[in-house]
Design a protein around this nucleic acid. Sequence first.
DNA 1: ATTGATCCATGACGTTGGTCAAGTGCGCAC
DNA 2: GTGCGCACTTGACCAACGTCATGGATCAAT
Lengths: 227, 227
Amino acid sequence: MPNELQKEIARTSTLMRLLPEQHVEMLLSKAIWRHYDRDETLFLQGEEATAIHIVLDGWIKLYRVTANGSEAVVSVFTRGDSFGEAVALRNLTYPVSAQSVTASEVMHIPANVLVGLILRDAQVGLSILASTFNHLHSLVAQLEQLKAQTAGQRVAEFLLNLGNSDSGSCRVTLPYDKVLIAGRLGIKPESLSRAFSRLKAFGVEIDKNHANIHNVKLLRNFVDAEK
Amino acid sequence: MPNELQKEIARTSTLMRLLPEQHVEMLLSKAIWRHYDRDETLFLQGEEATAIHIVLDGWIKLYRVTANGSEAVVSVFTRGDSFGEAVALRNLTYPVSAQSVTASEVMHIPANVLVGLILRDAQVGLSILASTFNHLHSLVAQLEQLKAQTAGQRVAEFLLNLGNSDSGSCRVTLPYDKVLIAGRLGIKPESLSRAFSRLKAFGVEIDKNHANIHNVKLLRNFVDAEK
DNA sequence: ATTGATCCATGACGTTGGTCAAGTGCGCAC
DNA sequence: GTGCGCACTTGACCAACGTCATGGATCAAT
């Protein structure tokens, strides 16, 4: 049973905000609305995709389990983000697994509903391409970070992206626990912890799950520092 | 002026092989066919995309130049691969730059031609999503590799992907120079060189731009080795 | 208050890969 | 041939990060 707030978030999601009103209403009416507790699995890599997913609240991680059993976090999604479009529309199998990392509300749109809509109105296909492109772009950005930045720089950039000011100071909330943040950044929790303490020198204070950035420009400078 | 071989490659590209014949012919007739010498730039990150690209011959790299001036190679494409779909269809700006790393033949399809086709036949949109999904998938695989494998394992996996047998022995050709291979794998040329010599112990011989893998299963084993 | 669980910080140490510098092998122009 | 340039290799050294072990802080249950 979706409430109005949830519907509003859905309407403004990357996936739907460009669609004409009557399509949106149709999708909302055919969607499945579900609550997930913390650490529930939405799907596993290798499963066949039958729906696309829009996060209404909470945090969902996409991750891969590697041949030797360790876990690589690929993305972490939150309110307004959608995922699984490209896979579901082709009836392919997921290349990643998905799990809630906090209690979450997620809306599922059955793939056949969306396919039907695309065939009737090709504009919808372009909308979905747009959102898929966002994912492409964010993966490209992650690759660049991993290849060209040190762990410390990645941590700093992560903090800067949480607050979205570009000068002055700001206080941001760490959205999920530090093990996951470390995973998202491709480092171990211990390294994250050390990176945080090294960032003190650049005006960053970590207090529980909050970070105070005293001088945004100074930190930005550190991220962009040549080698 | 395309020759028949080039047209045949285009027809079997990821992007077009699922399209009905008459659409393919139309796209081929509207396409721009171009030769690039080595090290020519196709486009730069930040430029507005006006076409999608299909590689007919040679190798094209996509890369990002970071704030501190260093370069991160994101993808390397060859015969039959297409790129730029999601960007061109939305008239967005490229998140990466593209450059030929060998002399290459590339076919460009103007975005407006493709958009027109999608609006007339939504099936085309799904085809493009399929090819975009391939890119997504390969980026996800790269992320996993960077986060969960050592440089040596990445090098070994790269060699295994070049030959596509899964047992016995095989001889593969290194498709482009070692500086670029190193970039693609997120390491420095020196480290690539050292990785190669360490792989001798696993039956890999490097000779100029060829690699002999004496025992594919042994090497696969090394890649999948638990930590 | 005590226990245990969970999450995080810190220290000691090992390994990986980057950096810098020198050297090798090969192709090519003359 | 000789000389030069380029791609690659090798070695010595160092910084960054992972690993392993320990200990503190917080919270809930008893």
